[in-house]
Design a protein around this nucleic acid. Structure first.
Lengths: 198, 198
DNA sequence: TAGTATTCGGAGCAACGCTCCGTTTTGTCA
DNA sequence: TGACAAAACGGAGCGTTGCTCCGAATACTA
């Protein structure tokens, strides 16, 4: 029951049958290529994998961000919906926040170069950034507010800044056992915690 | 009295006069272009600015990282040398660490896209990453160790991870008043601090 | 001054993003 | 079913960038 068509992705209803078929083919091919070559893979490569011309991809997904968005939409929405659930089920709002961030980090970390793309100042991905913010920022804000309200963390931290920080920390962890974003994010959350005023 | 020629930069001594002259011209031009267009600027643009052929740039600085390194070498070395000085002069090792990180962040934040390039998984900048690590990691490690020794922060944090985290947090702050890496880095340091065991 | 090693410059190739337009496919209506 | 128009397709093609190659120009040496 998520918002309909939150991103600029072209609708598929009412289109010709071959168009709908191709849309799905491209989506599947893109998902495969993203895994093997990252979200920065050449459009030509995705087109080849899909057995389709490049123009077909551009027609269905005008910008690269639209394609990436469409591929990962389900997982993003899952993250959105997990927020309130965690808040209801966790021991404390802080715990809910922690678990939600874990979820988000897991999502980012398992997609080659997604975090990189998200924060890239390259405006090719501006729409992707915007989509993530649109969907996830309210959730993060809600969790953060709840944790502040409960006195678990001190106020003053902006959800936007926190999300970007987490996204940034997830950049470039690939093939580097010396760098685990989770440890630093744990540290960050530690710093966020209000010293227990008993 | 820093290490001589720590990066793969081509030496200028013993070369022909025009070569040395061109080397300097390119360096100056690159510095200007980096400011206006970021460290990702096309080599053609730098060559044009310098009034020189592209091959000349590649001859003096085989990889882009070599050029960036050469342009910023002085500032990096200044950062290296500031470490011990801060440690000697600050109120506490933790304070020295904080001030040193401030210095490092200031450096990163004032260079368009430098932080981005540093952590890019694009191997075009691998040598740049390596150079930063070579020079700065020991300094960071020394400050970190001192702070642990003094009991200011809890042990267990790896200098490498900390440096990468800081670098990552500096990514993409440009033209976004909502995102100030310094606030998050302060939070991170807060999380690093050992709760005062009195 | 002549000779040679060094350096220079930009043409050229490959890879990529994105568009344009002739061709093919699909849905519709008589 | 058999046209016919609208929709969709595919890839050639243009612009940009990274990087190399090689004939031309330049600086040192004897």
């Amino acid at each position: 029951m998520a918002t309909d068509n939150p991103a600029g992705e072209s609708p598929s209803r009412g289109k010709r049958a071959d168009a709908q078929r191709n849309r799905q083919t491209v989506l599947t091919a893109a998902a495969e290529v993203f895994v093997s070559s990252g979200v920065d893979a050449p459009i030509r490569q995705i087109a080849a994998q899909a057995g389709v011309g490049m123009a077909t991809i551009y027609r269905h997904f005008p910008t690269r961000a639209d394609l990436v968005t469409a591929v990962y939409r389900h997982q993003i929405e899952a993250c959105v919906e997990a927020g309130p659930n965690l808040l209801a089920g966790a021991d404390s709002p802080l715990d809910a926040l922690r678990q939600w961030i874990d979820l988000f980090v897991d999502f980012l970390v398992t997609k080659h170069g997604l975090a990189d793309a998200l924060q890239s100042d390259n405006d090719r991905f501006a729409a992707l950034h915007a989509y993530f913010l649109d969907r996830l920022l309210p959730v993060c804000a809600q969790l953060l507010d709840a944790a502040v309200e409960a006195g678990d963390i001190s106020p003053g931290t902006q959800p936007y800044e926190l999300m970007r920080g987490i996204g940034n920390l997830c950049i470039g962890h690939d093939n580097d056992p010396r760098y685990d974003p989770r440890r630093l994010i744990a540290l960050l959350l530690q710093g966020l915690q209000r010293p227990h005023a008993s």
